[in-house]
């Protein structure tokens, strides 16, 4: 705090001589003044429009065609009527929800438990760095770590065999739930730190005097957590879990490297479905239709859950 005030003073002191130069300038007109904030925010907004609105419109347009390399033939709403009857599309949507939902719940529970047990520990700074590490690996590398551990190197099977949980090698890609489990493990391992670091920060920032007072009244650590900390953290939890939840729905890298959707599409997520339709099967019109549908879902979620989460987070 002391440090930042210092910088502030320096900033103010430096501003004074420069101000003299600006005061000779003629005062700006009222319109110029009104336009100024738009000029500031304009470049960023234009950049984002170019990379979201343009592609969004392009996808909508392309989704009305059957695209075979350079040939675009008009299909009207054909891609959409096909897609809503496509079992693979609904499976991808369901997989995304199942894998994402389980993964997000596990991450939230683990992150909260670990944060609860370490936030007043004398070594909390050390724990924070250790628990953060998985998040700092490139996601593609993490996918390979778990691909090797589960499939190619058989390490997990071997460890499970040595403690007697399974009797022979497990083929993780042979069953729907085992394959999903490998994706969940990889995601939980890499991203629990995201929630942990936010939760532990919130707990550490909590007023110690309230805790102390409750302790003196004989409250147990657990009851302080349930009755005081958790309700106070609610807005923070909502924001953190919302952000993580959004990222989980975009899961692609792990699927691409670890399972490629096997067995029988049971691990294909929405992102992988779009990728496969577009860049493996070259059904660009069809992939665009799927993109548009996913965009609609995103907009609905953003307008409802996210808007509310960020409003409550700020207060």
């Amino acid at each position: 705090m002391a440090h930042s005030t210092h910088t502030l003073e320096k900033g103010a002191a430096k501003a004074a001589p420069a101000a003299a130069v600006y005061s000779i300038r003629r005062p700006r007109s009222a319109t110029a003044k009104k336009m100024f904030p738009y000029l500031l925010v304009g470049p960023a907004v234009l950049y984002l429009l170019a990379i979201t609105l343009y592609p969004g419109l392009f996808a909508m347009y392309q989704s009305l065609f059957v695209v075979k390399f350079v040939n675009w033939s008009w299909a009207g709403l054909g891609n959409y009527t096909r897609i809503i009857q496509d079992r693979e599309f609904w499976a991808a949507l369901a997989n995304t929800a199942i894998i994402g939902g389980l993964s997000l719940s596990l991450q939230t529970i683990i992150a909260m438990t670990v944060a609860f047990y370490c936030y007043r520990d004398p070594f909390v700074r050390g724990w924070r760095i250790v628990f953060l590490m998985p998040m700092l690996f490139m996601p593609s590398a993490v996918a390979f770590i778990w691909k090797l551990a589960f499939n190619d190197g058989r390490v997990i099977s071997d460890l499970l065999m040595s403690v007697g949980l399974v009797s022979n090698n497990v083929d993780w890609l042979s069953s729907v739930w085992l394959a999903r489990l490998t994706l969940i493990v990889a995601d939980v391992w890499q991203w629990t730190p995201f929630l942990f670091i936010i939760f532990v920060g919130a707990l550490q920032g909590q007023d110690e005097e309230i805790e102390e007072a409750a302790r003196l009244d004989g409250a147990s650590w657990g009851s302080i957590f349930w009755n005081i900390s958790l309700p106070m953290m609610r807005p923070i939890i909502v924001v953190a879990v919302t952000l993580r939840g959004i990222d989980i729905t975009t899961m692609f890298t792990n699927v691409y490297i670890m399972t490629q959707g096997t067995p029988g599409g049971a691990t294909e997520t929405m992102s992988y479905f779009i990728y496969r339709q577009g860049f493996r099967m070259f059904n660009f019109g069809y992939a665009s239709a799927a993109s548009v549908l996913m965009l609609l879902i995103t907009i609905v979620i953003a307008q409802t859950i996210v808007k509310r989460a960020f409003k409550s987070g700020k207060s």
Partner: peptide, 18 residues
């Protein structure tokens, strides 16, 4: 501006490629 963060990369992948 915030909402562009919510957009899955796959949604714009095909158009961005083109």
């Amino acid at each position: 501006i915030l909402s562009t963060r919510m957009m899955a990369p796959a949604i714009v992948a095909v158009p961005i490629f083109f």
